[in-house]
Amino acid sequence: MLRMLAARLGQMVFVLFGISVLVFGVFFATPGADPTARIAGRGASPEVMARVRSAYGFDRPLPVQYARMMEKLFVSRDLTSFVDHGAPVVPEVMAAAPVTLSLVLWASLFWVVFSLAIGIVSAVLRDSWVDRFFMGIGLLGLSMPVFWLGEVVNLVTQSRFHDTWLFSWVPPLGYVPFSESPLGWARALLLPALTLSVAFIGLYARVLRAELLAAMGEDAIRTARAKGAGPARVWLWHGLRLSWLSYVSLFGMDFAQLVGGGALLTEVVFALPGVGRLTYQGLNTLDLPLIMATVMYAAVFVVLANAVIDGVYALLDPRIAEGRHGR
């Protein structure tokens, strides 16, 4: 068990290392992305360029630059931006994180509740018109670009029907911190979170329905039925227990990716100052320290989620921990 944990930890560190090298390499090895010219400004004289280069250490070998950046990011935590007058990067990410976290928490609440309800109802009423309707709607939700859906939502709630009773409560685009006004916080996040969750509701409802129907064919269900369990107990207790493994692992991955900045498009469309939008700003100015900080922050979440999922798997299904389950 301890050896497995150590191997797992080593693997996590390796993935994080790989990502940091990848991001660093992409931005330093790409022609046209030289940070010196960006910092010095357009048409700077060669002397200024040379000064910037030595001040920022761009004349050092790449591995040294990489090591210094990692040290500043993880050890001394005083990595500064290349563009924004040398503003420290870590506090910026920390300020954006609660926005993204709130958005994703709301969205995941919606998508878990709705997808559970739709998935179970569709599985129980398999092949009825209700099932077909829900699965069709789910597929439609999966097929919509989230930024476009967000714009349509904005059009309806901010402009066309804003003055009707239905949407007069919708606040202008932007974020309200929870500490300022809990109600305002909830109101500002409701529509963005719903928009973000639409595709996930569709996907998760479909996955859950498929897994439930597959579980119904297993011996455990037949045994439960034979022992006299009612339909509610069969579906909700035995069925869900057999089928929630893939649901949980899917959820862990998606949640981590969104918290790590995957909700970028939603944040951009709804003007929420979250991690995704921060990364996007950093990318637009090719601000490598900021990009490095946000991407590493995202990667930590994803890698942790992976580890947690594997742990949950091992808890739920001891066959995996013993390596007997073919993966």
């Binding site: 790989g18 990848l22 969104l258 498009l265 995704g276 991407v295």
Partner: peptide, 9 residues
């Protein structure tokens, strides 16, 4: 490594 970075990012 590739999968640990959000796809769109």
């Amino acid at each position: 490594v590739l999968w640990a970075i959000p796809v769109y990012l």
